[in-house]
Computed example of a mutant assay.
Amino acid sequence: MPDAARYPKRSAHAARTREAIIAAAAELFSAQGYTGTTMKAIAITAGVSVESVYLAGSKSSLLATAMTVAFTGREGDRPLAEDPAYAAVFALPDPNLALNRYVELVSASIARSVGLWRTARAAADVEPEIRRLFDEVLARRRSDLELAGPWLVAHRLITPAEADDVVASLSVLVSHEVYEHLVVQFGWPVTKYSAWLRSAIDRLILNSADRPAESSPTEQGRP
């Protein structure tokens, strides 16, 4: 019998301890960077022992986990399409409503994780293990974004020939770097960024080349 079933209180306590450690790591990595954050500081912030922090993972793995949790709200590396919130977006029959909801979700995800993204990006230049983990995150992100191509084609918003270029452009629009540039450097409120992102996605689709007249977004119910 699994320990979680035999000792539910112990399992619940372990889960809460891990959540506290990941939350503390996220807070400190975002505020102090990778080198400025110590395992002892994570332990103090989480209210646990240093031994518990080391049991939760290495410093680099804690950063990677904190990034994932901040962006998706959960641990693990399953595709975003399998996440209930994003799966619900893909299942919406109205593409206009789906894109609105997608922008809401991705804006919130980036806002939660931009500090950690900045820390990981900087640490990747000097820490080989962070570089490996960061590259894995980038690869998963690309795989997630590539799911948008077939969805846009299926809703007749783009043609199959346009899919690769549209997805590549979309990856720029929804990047942490663009959010950081507009919100952090230029001081835009998140609401303004989200409105800009929604408009930019519209322009990306509308300006795609070789648009068949019968498949324009306007005819699909877009304003």
Rank of each mutant, 00 (worst) to 15 (best):
I22N: 05
V53L: 02
A12E: 13
P8K: 13
G57F: 03
P128Q: 02
R74N: 07
R140S: 10
K9F: 10
A200L: 04
I44F: 13
A87F: 01
H13M: 13
P212N: 11
E127A: 05
R140M: 09
V69T: 12
L145C: 09
P84C: 13
L99K: 07
H176I: 09
L92A: 03
E75V: 14
A70F: 00
R121F: 11
P84N: 12
E146H: 14
P8V: 04
I44P: 00
V178C: 03
R131K: 15
L182S: 02
R101M: 13
A31L: 06
L28E: 12
D77Q: 08
Y193I: 05
A122N: 01
A43Q: 12
S52I: 01
E136V: 00
P217S: 12
P160V: 03
S11I: 01
D83W: 01
V184P: 04
T45D: 05
R74P: 01
A161V: 01
P79V: 10
D94W: 05
A91F: 03
L145H: 06
P160H: 03
A81W: 08
L147Y: 00
S107D: 05
R142D: 02
L62P: 02
A200R: 02
I21D: 09
L147K: 00
D202P: 00
L28G: 02
R132Y: 05
E177S: 11
S113W: 04
H13S: 15
N100I: 09
D94E: 12
P217Y: 11
R142S: 14
L206G: 09
L80R: 01
F186Q: 14
L55H: 13
F71D: 07
N100F: 07
T72Q: 02
K59P: 04
R203I: 01
I42Q: 02
K192G: 06
G187F: 09
G149C: 06
K9V: 00
Q32L: 12
E82K: 00
A4R: 12
G149T: 05
Y193L: 10
V167W: 04
G76A: 12
A139Y: 08
A88C: 06
L99M: 15
N96Q: 11
E19T: 10
R156S: 15
A120I: 08
L63Q: 08
I205R: 06
L152R: 05
L197S: 01
E19Q: 14
E219I: 10
L55M: 13
T119N: 10
Y193A: 07
E136I: 00
V53D: 00
L63F: 13
M1K: 09
Q32A: 14
A23M: 07
A98Q: 08
V69K: 12
H13F: 06
N100Y: 13
H181F: 15
R18K: 12
A23R: 13
L147E: 08
L28H: 06
G149K: 08
P128E: 00
I110E: 10
A161H: 11
A5E: 11
S52W: 06
L206A: 12
L145P: 02
N100S: 03
A12N: 06
V183R: 14
D210V: 03
V190F: 01
Q32Y: 07
D94M: 01
G36N: 04
V50W: 08
L133T: 11
E104R: 10
L145Q: 08
I21S: 07
T38N: 09
E177W: 02
L157P: 07
A213Q: 08
H181M: 11
G221A: 14
L152C: 01
L105M: 07
A23W: 01
S107E: 04
R211L: 07
A91D: 13
G36W: 03
